[in-house]
């Protein structure tokens, strides 16, 4: 079964590399959304520094959401999902493998781009490490929750909007603690409690989300 999961991750990574534009688009969106804010709230450095963490998190969250709709959709439409379900891996494992590949191809570039954007948003350099750490702990949770949503809307009319409606409210806890971690480091408070909360959310999502996504895929195939 591990070989089968490895095969899925390998195939999805290869597909993402071949169609490199798709994951690049998420990063471009992320950059654009962040660049809009200095125009929206004014370029005063102290204003930007105060909202930088929130802007970065919200933009990263929306960028990750953009590509989620296609997570299972392509495999669902071309019949691959049927064949995956008929293979040795159970549906939760298939969902987990595809979510892992999605995280590697969309969230990792976002995390890499985040410090650069933090720089132009005037976030104090002392907060960079906590920003990256919070993103590393928080974005997998976003992908896992998003994976459940993507599996639920398979075959729905207007799946994209529906996906946002389902998933964004569930993103709120990650957003709260992700921003709080960066904010705490900005004013010199302890960052660990917030990071621990993010880690706890990740653990809960790791345990529950693949099962829920698997159940949703089962409904989609039936």
């Amino acid at each position: 079964m591990l070989a089968a999961i490895g095969a899925i991750i390998g195939r999805d990574l290869r597909l993402a590399l071949r169609q490199g534009l798709d994951s690049l688009l998420a990063v471009v969106f992320f950059v654009l959304a962040c660049v809009l804010f200095p125009f929206g709230v004014g370029p005063a450095p102290e204003t930007l520094a105060r909202i930088a963490a929130g802007v970065l998190w919200v933009a990263a969250l929306l960028a990750a959401l953009l590509s989620l709709e296609r997570l299972f959709q392509a495999d669902y439409e071309d019949g691959s999902l049927d064949l995956l379900a008929l293979g040795p891996a159970p549906l939760p494992a298939i969902a987990a493998a595809k979510i892992a590949a999605h995280w590697l191809t969309t969230s990792v570039p976002l995390i890499a781009a985040a410090p650069v954007l933090a720089l132009i948003l005037n976030l104090p350099p002392a907060a960079f490490s906590s920003l990256v750490l919070a993103l590393v702990l928080g974005t997998p949770t976003l992908s896992l929750i998003g994976g459940v949503g993507a599996a639920l809307v398979l075959g729905a009319r207007r799946g994209g909007v529906l996906l946002a409606l389902l998933v964004l409210p569930l993103y709120i806890p990650v957003l709260i603690f992700g921003v709080a971690a960066v904010g705490a480091s900005q004013i010199g408070l302890a960052v660990q409690p917030h990071l621990f909360m993010l880690a706890a959310l990740l653990l809960v999502a790791l345990v529950l989300a693949p099962w829920a996504a698997g159940a949703a895929l089962r409904q989609a195939l039936d």
């Binding site: 597909l15 169609q19 439409e77 071309d78 008929l86």
Partner: peptide, 16 residues
Amino acid sequence: HGRLHLIGHQDAIKPA
């Protein structure tokens, strides 16, 4: 599942 092959209407081919 291990003992069957299914060829459906869709061909499950990745163009890339």
